[in-house]
Design a protein around this nucleic acid. Structure first.
Lengths: 249, 249
DNA sequence: AAGTGGTCTAGACCACTAT
DNA sequence: TAGTGGTCTAGACCACTTT
């Protein structure tokens, strides 16, 4: 059974025509009117049907492609895709949602140390063993319950001493984007399952060897020099990531 | 110091003009010519500079916005963004890269059971306790090393019996997209840290209580009826996710 | 040859921000 | 008023697939 695309573009709407067109097509796919594998009406058909220009149709279809909902084959047509892994991603933004109330999230500075780089730190930061670094430990709590331990090793630059405001970040975003500094160009994150060490479990008030999530990070400045290496370790029962694939609505 | 955007659009290139423009601007931002917070040349300036139409400039800038590299404020201009969490996502595609050689990945069917739904399964699949379901266990190995255990509970539909081909999926993608079936509309995934149970550790040939990654999934058909609930459990030392943020290249 | 996706133009019009 | 982002048009031209 093939349903027709009956909705029309509302020219007076605050929504641009291309957005309306995306939603109309999405809705029809979601309803099962166009099953995976089937062909959408051609662009010129859509153009006539909705009274819009080629560029507007094209833009709508480009958005559907980016969303992983359809695929196009030049000369053949536009086809509905089956649900797939393409758009299958865990947003780290979801992490913040574990904090029931963002106002009740606090970040406590446990320790700030001027130290010397060991082999591992030197390798991660691209410096020599024995070079000076700053080691920071922070504890992130929610409702006075400790949740995440953060360890960070910063390049020590005598010309640009750490100001207090950079250490006392009060929100997670700030921590993860590199302490609110805007001179960072890029970063790399790795997430893996781990167990809490003895020491970590004490700080986090959890049983030792409990499942944990470890999120490692390296930040680079605009000279592509690594300036910060560290990790967040979190009780596994407090951190889950969820994601949806396919057509939700 | 403000560098000029010196590159030109190559009209004979196989790359569309808008892609070239995206890369030119990206390159300049990456080089530090435009630092976070600074304003890009206006769209009309870019139009004149590169001899392209307004739509082409617009399209390039839209792409930079989607990539999280710039932000626009109507009436003011286009500004370089600081690295942020926006585009911070772990692609599950990365999962497949743990398999050094995709050809050496095998999926073995351990068990297929016709069973009755318990409370939990009934609730997940939106059916009643005692309704019939199919329980499947699969073992995913790489180079003969067991890596992932998969448990899946399928709605039993006497009108659509499971065909063998649906059970014997030979690639990870097939498993994760719902056994190659194209009548699935959407799915939901949750990932969390866990520990291997006694039974799981035996199957996976790993010490019990070892760190593990648990990936739970539910799939829905076009009637929004859940048809499959299950999970993948994997040795933590075999599964890591990596992602990059900011401007790499 | 006819139909499909895909890029691009040159201008129009609007909304917002600065001055 | 002048400059900015933002949408949209009506057609041109190209590449590819089907008949």
């Amino acid at each position: 059974m093939i349903k027709l695309l009956t909705d029309l573009i509302d020219r007076d709407s605050f929504e641009p025509a291309y957005v309306q067109l995306v939603n109309i097509i999405r809705k029809h796919i979601a309803s099962g009117a166009f099953l995976p594998g089937s062909k959408l009406p051609s662009e010129s058909a859509l153009r006539k049907k909705y009274g819009v220009s080629p560029m507007t149709v094209r833009r709508a279809i480009n958005i559907l492609i980016e969303k992983g909902i359809v695929d196009t084959i030049q000369g053949k047509g536009t086809f509905v895709k089956a649900m797939d892994l393409g758009n299958f991603a865990f947003q780290l933004n979801e992490l913040q949602s574990i904090f029931s109330d963002r106002e009740k999230t606090s970040i406590k500075l446990l320790k700030v140390n001027l130290a010397f780089a060991d082999d591992q730190i030197a390798s991660k930061l691209g410096i020599s063993k024995g070079d000076r670094i700053i080691n920071i430990r922070r504890l992130i709590s929610n409702n006075d319950e400790p949740i995440i331990l953060n360890v960070e090793n910063l390049l020590y630059d005598p010309l640009r001493p750490l100001v207090e405001s950079e250490m006392e970040v009060t929100n997670l975003g700030g921590l993860l984007t590199g302490n609110g500094k805007t001179d960072l160009k890029k970063g790399e994150f790795t997430i893996e399952a781990a167990m809490l060490h003895e020491e970590e479990s004490k700080v986090l008030d959890a049983p030792p060897l409990a499942p944990a999530v470890r999120l490692e990070h390296v930040f680079f400045d605009f000279e592509d020099q690594p300036t910060s290496w560290g990790w967040f370790i979190c009780r596994g029962d407090r951190m889950k990531f969820s994601t949806k694939v396919g057509i939700w609505e």
